[in-house]
Design a protein around this nucleic acid. Structure first.
Lengths: 336, 336
DNA sequence: TAAGTAGATGCAAACGGTTGCATAAACCTG
DNA sequence: CAGGTTTATGCAACCGTTTGCATCTACTTA
């Protein structure tokens, strides 16, 4: 038989209100009855119906999250699992829950978001990606619905966001290479339209500047996020009589393709050319030579996204509307 | 201003009951008013409050799922993301939602499950792993709470489960090797306690039997699920004067370690020894030589887990209390 | 000891829907 | 055209909590 607050009240010979107060430690209740009620609660095995609670409280104690279409492709990357883990870890510590949906494409993403918002089942939303002119962000801002995004949104002062410090990460990679004697460092990056690429490129430049190395635009290449493009553009690069002694990339897969090209053309890694990746995917440790890369703490990213959003929900005064997660340089054998 | 069913009722000059009926296509309503109400619903931008609905319906239209502790380690495997994707895909098609939590260890898993069940926020639960003497399954069965598990549970006739057809998969791998001329095929499997290993081993044996090859227990080894153990046990195997012309493994990582040992000892892959993996992880396609492996359709696994559970929730008569997902043999260059 | 105050509890409405039952209107049918 | 049936609608209770307000009791304090 289901046990409700009324049952408990009957047994304790008090009103449901009193039970309710006992359960949430209201000051409007005497120590004695509180203890008595708590005993009966245990005895009967009573657990509040969270749905009823949500209705009365006008808060579901739940956040929503949409797995973007891109989750499907990025098989190489445990980012999503790790991110979700981080989110749930924080939410659980705060007795919040996570409602997850997925979308096949951008359009569906927005649909899912509106559905979730409209149905009032969540108090806020976590967006796992940012796009140029992001419709999702637009919608949420227009409707003043609380949310946090991962990555670097356009109106960065008006929204909550978390990101890993891409610029600093690439600065560290480049600096490390310079310090170990490299002078001609090529940059293989993904689409320049992406904020990630831009920021990583900034870090690269920053390091060059610091050590007074002239930026050489002919060894800065834009490639797609895959092994093949890394391979092809490295081939082109090396065959063009350019002498480089290091190649930094914005992804392990690109680095992997690059390694293949370098080896094929008879150079040794890292003796002739050092190569670095990014994202520290599973590949990195198993490649030969193992790949120096940058570890992104996706779980901490998720953790802090949830934390930031919850803090803002509770009218807490936030010092910052964003949170930068530190990355970690993982040195392996592909660089000197 | 928030728009509730009462607002709509007022505008349409009907009672809330009528609006409610209009929205769910009840036969107790005239075509005319139904259309009128639907117009007003659109005009006002009304969306039912799902929480209130759940309370009245005593059903949340939501399933619960717990990311097991092991999700943390299995970085190499996009299994979880893919599985979740499959689940959400099906749930969305049925207008259901997914409530996700995570657990750091077995104990916490059970806690999460009881919490979720007690709070009445979900109609059923999806378990992503099965253990020996699984406390979670025990609890759910005792409380007669609807659930489905991934993998092969003990009381397989009494619970709902989905699994990939491990036996058949390994049968196919082994048969393929036999057909391409291999005679001495070693088996490198994970812990024999695991149902997965057992089933894969069965498939291996089945193929041997079919082609009248005598099982040789000295080339059947139990190893941990990692590269290193694959490496070490293959070394031992090859140094023990055994002649093998193929090695099947129950995981790509084991296979990878195995490849390393084989190459070090001077054998060629696949000319001298063929090697196969399992799970078709990202590694497989990027190794050298690329690794023949077995693709597990985790997304379909999730899809059907959700489907099975929902079917049982709707008192549908099930033909089967389980669903076997087909695997796919991916031939690459590590086998002839 | 009377009046005032603090503390503990209950009542009843509210949250936003659903649904069994009663009823009114419209339609048959002989 | 009276009586019965069908169809469409409304009423009110209910789902399980929360909470503002009223009430009651007991304790101060002059």
């Amino acid at each position: 038989m289901k046990v409700t607050i009324k049952e408990v009240a009957k047994y304790a010979e008090v009103s449901p209100s009193t039970v309710s107060r006992a359960l949430k430690n209201s000051p409007l209740i005497s120590q004695g009855t509180k203890e008595r009620i708590n005993e009966i609660v245990k005895e009967l095995g009573y657990h509040p119906n969270e749905i009823a609670r949500s209705l009365a409280n006008k808060s579901s104690h739940t956040l929503g999250m949409i797995l973007p279409a891109s989750a499907e492709d990025s098989l190489i990357n445990p980012f999503f699992t790790q991110f979700i883990l981080g989110v749930t870890r924080y939410l659980e510590s705060q007795h919040y829950s996570l409602l997850l949906s997925s979308a096949k494409n951008e359009e569906e993403e927005l649909q899912q978001i509106t559905r979730t918002v409209n149905s009032k089942r969540v108090d806020g939303i976590i967006l796992m990606t940012v796009r140029e002119n992001d419709k999702n962000i637009e919608y949420l801002m227009e409707n003043k619905f609380p949310f946090v995004v991962v990555g670097n949104p356009k109106k960065r002062d008006e929204v909550l966001w978390v990101d890993n410090n891409n610029q600093k990460a690439m600065f560290e990679v480049t600096e490390e290479l310079i310090k170990t004697g490299h002078k001609k460092i090529a940059f293989l990056g993904g689409s320049k339209k992406l904020k990630v690429t831009k920021n990583r490129f900034k870090g690269y430049m920053e390091a060059l500047q610091k050590y007074n190395i002239q930026l050489d635009n002919t060894i800065v290449l834009e490639v797609g996020f895959c092994e093949k493009e890394g391979y092809l553009s490295t081939q082109k690069l090396l065959k063009s009589n350019k002498t480089v002694d290091a190649i930094v990339t914005t992804d392990d897969l690109i680095a992997y393709g690059s390694m293949r090209a370098v080896k094929e053309l008879g150079y040794r890694i890292p003796d002739d050319i050092s190569i670095t990746g990014f994202n520290n995917t599973v590949l990195a440790q198993y490649l030969f030579p193992s790949l120096t890369s940058v570890e992104i703490n996706s779980s901490e990213l998720g953790f802090n996204a949830a934390k930031l959003l919850l803090a803002s929900l509770s009218d807490e005064l936030l010092n910052e509307n964003f949170y930068m997660v530190k990355t970690q340089l993982i040195k392996r054998n592909s660089s000197k």
